[in-house]
Amino acid sequence: MDDLNGAGGLPGADELVIAGERFGSRLIMGTGGAPSLDVLDRALAESRTELTTVAMRRLDPEAPGSVLDLLRRRGIKVLPNTAGCYTAGEALLTARLAREALETPWVKLEVIADERTLLPDPVETLDAAEKLVADGFVVLPYIGDDPILARRMEQAGCAAVMPLGAPIGSGLGIRNPHNIELIVESAGVPVILDAGLGTASDAALAMELGCDAVLLASAVTRAQNPALMAAAMRDAVVAGRAARLAGRIPRLRHAQASSPSR
């Protein structure tokens, strides 16, 4: 965004700020689905992400040579998540284990309602969020694209809200852009579009709708060329953010000549 700053379009650096912590990149990555650690490593490098989420279940934080080593080596902040939890109770347990193992109060809260859709359970998620906030966690909850629920999460003290674009891993893009706009409109904390993105235009759209960041994994890790897709996502997020800040022209029903006629 250096060029934009130079042009006077933006006051100061355009950083993402979550719970007082600053990030130069607005692309948050997930680590699931990569065929190998090397492929993941190259994709993370291309993405230039500064924050990456890791599923704490089925991972021993002490084991050498794991994805955590890779993130430490690259200096990427680890955002532990509670993927695979179906109840608030499990999520609390997983979050506390992660806090102890990784020495971070940050957690991406994910409480899934059923295996088929992997949609988040709103009641369990809110319940877990309230308890985790009370316990001193910095909570980033994964939620449906419901503006009211987003507001309730913010009221509960969450540091950001993470509405989905579409079900996890589906690659369907943003199915309800209007709801995402409504969430953005009223949110006082960062809005991070999480889940369902398939390709670069989806990430750009999220940013054009006013999201503060996007989180994606499968779209990159399961692509035919993950590193190249990571580069595409990086650029799409920057482009979408710039477009949002630049302010798009109104949509008109008929042509309007670009050169002045008189």
Partner: peptide, 9 residues
Amino acid sequence: ATQEEMGFD
């Protein structure tokens, strides 16, 4: 078979 990163567990 499962695939898990659990060290020597």
